[in-house]
């Protein structure tokens, strides 16, 4: 049985900064301004030390740096692209066999490793209700191999494999799909809303005591987006504020929209910023057309409908950010 102990979590920016524990150290090999490193740092603060990381091929494998050095302050197994959730399943089984129930395996995969090549593996581990936490670091591209289109690339974006017209299809709604697996915890998060991201990681690790937990983190990859590294956080925030990346949690099947995303849901005209505001800062949307905007709006509406169908519960205490 999955144990719950859901309470509101309060954390201030100062507290987050003061908590020095992080399992990704300085001197790691990420690009300047990589939102993924920020996400890793904040999330690892919430997870604490008793975790074993499984990292499939992705920028996360490179950020660690070269042997004999490592920028990771926690046990890590680097694995093949499609295998992460299965390796974590094996670790979970071994921990259970050993009776080490204080330790939990955590997958730290990219969007390609999650929504494309690793999707069957992820789904298998969720269906088996494996005791693990899976975090998808979504930069909306195959970052490590040079910014190609992935199933998580949003419509309209130019990538190195959709270089001229941009992607014409929608982004795969994997968090919704994961929630439909009936797992105890699913959340979307963004580096644009750091305390919210921290709380979700904290909830996944400390309040949901076992079972399969999934967090989908949206972040900015400056070279992939074609943006200035210093815009990294602001841009991620705009993705939420334009309604393209809604923030929500699904706790034991009950869905809650968080913060601005909830306001957008209740009063879209008032709180939803036009998507153009997000596009104009990114080279991947350079020279975007009316058609691109229309496509993105349709995508946004469809995603909202998808979530709407599921949001039936409210708990004011949990919704605030």
């Amino acid at each position: 049985m999955v144990e719950f102990d859901i309470k509101p979590i309060r954390v201030t920016n100062e507290e987050l900064i003061e908590n020095r524990f992080s399992n990704i150290l300085k001197g790691n090999h990420a690009c300047a301004g990589c939102g993924g490193t920020l996400a890793m740092r904040i999330i690892s603060k919430a997870f604490g030390r008793n975790v074993i990381y499984v990292i499939p091929a992705s920028c996360s494998s490179v950020r660690q740096g070269f042997i004999p050095k490592s920028a990771m302050a926690c046990p890590v197994f680097n694995t093949a692209f499609a295998s992460a959730a299965a390796v974590a399943s094996g670790i979970a089984a071994a921990l259970k066999y050993q009776g080490r129930d204080d330790v939990v395996p955590v997958v730290r995969a990219g969007d390609g490793g999650t929504v494309d090549i690793g999707l069957a593996t992820l789904s298998g581990a969720a269906e088996r209700q494996t005791n693990m936490i899976y975090v998808c670091y979504d930069n909306e591209e195959y970052g490590n191999t040079g910014y190609q289109r992935s199933g998580a690339t949003p419509p309209g974006a130019r990538t190195t494999t959709t270089p001229i017209k941009g992607k014409r299809e929608f982004k795969k709604p994997v968090p919704v799909l994961m929630a439909d697996h009936g797992v105890p915890y699913v959340a979307t998060a963004s580096i644009g809303y750091v305390p919210d991201m921290y709380k979700k990681a904290y909830r996944a690790r400390r309040q949901i005591k076992n079972g399969f937990r999934y967090i989908h983190v949206h972040f900015t990859c400056p070279p992939g987006r074609g943006t200035d590294p210093r815009d990294c956080v602001g841009l991620a925030k705009l993705a939420v504020d334009t309604g393209l990346r809604p923030l929500y949690e699904v706790i034991n099947g009950k869905r809650y929209l968080n913060g601005i995303s909830k306001k957008q849901y209740l009063e879209p005209d008032k709180y939803m910023k036009p998507v153009e505001e997000y596009l104009k800062y990114q080279r991947r949307y350079r020279g975007y057309t009316e058609e691109d905007v229309e496509l993105l709006n349709r995508y946004r509406d469809r995603y909202r409908d998808l979530i709407k169908r599921h949001v039936k519960y409210t708990n004011p205490e949990l919704e605030e950010i």
Binding site: A80, S83, A86, S89, I91, A93, A94, P105, T121, G124
Partner: peptide, 17 residues
């Protein structure tokens, strides 16, 4: 598991634990 790829992956994880 849901595939042989995952079978080998899982036993690697267990063995390394």
């Amino acid at each position: 598991v849901e595939s042989e790829h995952s079978a080998m992956s899982a036993v690697i994880g267990a063995s390394l634990t």
